[in-house]
Amino acid sequence: MPSPTQKALAKVPGPLRPFLVQHRSLVKFLLVGGTCFVLTLAINYALRFSICQSKPVVALTIATALATVVSYLLNRQWSFRSEGSHKEAIPFIVVSALAVGVNDLPLLASRYLFNLREPHVSHFTQEISDFLAGMILGTLVAMAFRYWAMKKFVFTTQRADEELQDATAEPVGPRH
């Protein structure tokens, strides 16, 4: 009986399969990250247009922290397939706290170092710079940091038998 991974790989064009198999944890990490990015974006702007109107860094910090909880659950169960123990919880919290700070740094610099805020710039320029610095640049830098730190310090014990099984399984689907 083919696994769900094997079924999904059968639908991928042949030349991409080796790349996806070789980098499957990165691909899964990026899918989880994309989902959490959308969640962060939604929470951030919900807060910015309601209770955190004058506190964009606070809104981004809260949004990132909430999305981090979702990220932990998804990465633990799917991306890195950690074994059943919760020994990675404390390193995850430390890495995530550092990553929230890394994520906030570009927005802090944009707002308070480069003064890209009202009254120094127009409201439109402020919003564009906040989005580019906080949501785009901050997320990209924090994502690279998280991926490296999660593999290095948090999810260090993957189920070797499942990894080996996925990598060596017979491809499902029509053979050419």
Rank of each mutant, 00 (worst) to 15 (best):
T5N: 08
Q6K: 07
V12Q: 01
G14T: 14
P18R: 04
P18D: 10
L20Q: 10
G34M: 07
T35V: 10
T35Q: 05
L41N: 09
A42M: 11
I43E: 04
N44D: 15
F49I: 07
Q53K: 14
V57M: 06
A59K: 04
T61L: 11
I62V: 15
A63F: 01
A63I: 07
A65S: 14
S71C: 09
S71D: 10
Y72M: 03
W78V: 05
W78D: 01
F80P: 02
S82R: 07
E83G: 11
G84R: 11
G84T: 05
S85M: 04
S85E: 10
E88D: 14
E88R: 00
A89G: 00
I90L: 14
V94M: 09
S96Y: 01
V102H: 02
V102S: 02
L105W: 03
L108W: 12
Y112R: 07
P119H: 06
S122G: 15
T125Q: 13
T125C: 08
Q126V: 00
L140G: 15
L140S: 13
F145Y: 15
K151Y: 03
K151G: 05
F153M: 07
F153R: 09
V154G: 00
T156Q: 10
Q158C: 06
Q158H: 12
E162A: 09
V172Y: 14
G173D: 08
G173H: 11
H176G: 13
